[in-house]
């Protein structure tokens, strides 16, 4: 019998797995960019805030779509649930302290996620896609009809949002507080999601995505896992929506619209789903492109974006990050001695 020369856990691939969650050298880069943006573009902080909210929203979508493989077109349901929670509580003078409002937004969105998930996640594929869409449409219609509470089609404007921690004023013209506030919340949410995806739970989500039937055969309570993941994702989307409402001091039907759900999906696919940073890259690329194209072709800019998406879908399934990874692999292969 051959005695193994090294312990099994010291196998290179085992070591790589054991350390895969460690931060890579480039990982501070996006955060440094985000802080640099604050100082470099004080006049664009409104745009920057919107961008950060979109990144957070995309991050929540990535958890269900990229990691658990749940196909959804209705993720704005949770964004809107969070936004309306913050908006309605503040507008009707019930509660408006920013941080606790945000937690309430998360809880309400999570409950919507749990409730709909219990029903939806029995289905798969196209049925699931349609049902997510229906859930969102139902909420949108409810918000439209309940104008006494929701402001209906006009939404609720001039929300009275008090200063953050009683110190930092939310100024709609110079949204410095908004920008830093959203950045900090994004960072916390990101740390949470990053921890989750490298955890045994995250590994089991990947298992469900890769082969649901096999997960049953290893004894995994698949539906409960999916519902848990969906609920967590909904809570994060709700936080994104709540931040959006606080930053803009208004809430309206666009928070629950298919436009918003489709936009975040496009951004995530553009960046590359299932890669945590896909939302970052995708949201930046999407917003920058939309900004740029809208200036060039004020009427037909969405056509350009649509074309780009077709190109991505045909030639770069894994988005911008996927292209980057493929290039890196090629460079490494060239420099490796055969």
């Amino acid at each position: 019998m051959i005695v193994a020369a090294i312990k099994p856990t010291e196998h290179l691939a085992a070591l790589a797995f054991a350390g895969r969650h460690r931060p890579r050298v480039w990982e501070p880069a996006p955060w440094i960019f985000a802080i640099a943006f604050y100082f470099a573009f004080p006049n664009y902080l409104g745009f920057g805030t919107e961008l950060l909210v979109t990144i957070l929203f995309a991050l929540s979508l990535d958890l269900v779509l990229g990691y658990a493989g749940i196909i959804t077109l209705g993720h704005a349901a949770f964004f809107g649930a969070g936004a309306y929670t913050v908006g309605m509580l503040a507008y009707h003078g019930i509660w408006n302290e920013p941080i606790s409002s945000l937690m309430l937004a998360a809880i309400v969105a999570a409950l919507v996620g749990l409730g709909s998930g219990l029903v939806l996640l029995r289905t798969q594929g196209l049925t699931l896609l349609m049902l997510t869409l229906c859930t969102m449409a139902l909420l949108e219609e409810a918000a439209n009809l309940g104008h006494e509470y929701t402001g209906g089609f006009d939404g609720l404007a001039s929300l009275p949002i008090p200063p953050l921690l009683g110190l930092f004023e939310f100024n709609p013209l110079y949204p410095r507080t908004q920008y830093l506030y959203v950045l900090i919340v994004l960072f916390i949410a990101f740390l949470f999601v990053r921890t989750l995806i490298y955890s045994p739970f995250g590994q089991s989500l990947a298992g469900i995505r890769e082969n649901t039937l096999r997960m049953h055969a290893v004894g995994s309570p698949v539906r409960a896992r999916l519902i848990t993941c969906y609920t967590i994702s909904a809570a994060i989307a709700g936080i994104a929506g709540g931040l959006w409402a606080q930053a803009n001091a208004y809430v309206n039907l666009t928070t629950l619209s298919l436009d918003r759900a489709a936009m975040v999906l496009i951004a995530l696919i553009l960046g590359g789903y299932g890669r945590i940073y896909g939302g970052f890259v995708g949201a930046v690329a999407y917003m920058a492109l939309a900004h740029f194209l809208a200036k060039l072709y004020p009427t037909g800019w969405q056509l350009g974006l649509g074309l780009l998406l077709v190109v991505i879908a045909l030639f770069a399934r894994n988005g911008i990050l996927g292209i980057g990874e493929a290039l890196l692999r090629r460079i490494r292969a060239k420099h490796m001695p055969q």
């Binding site: 797995f17 054991a18 921890t195 989750l196 490298y198 955890s199 739970f201 995250g202």
Partner: peptide, 12 residues
């Protein structure tokens, strides 16, 4: 597999 807060790699 329900553990969300520790890295999978930490379970030697």
């Amino acid at each position: 597999a329900l553990d969300m807060f520790r890295p999978a790699g930490a379970r030697r």
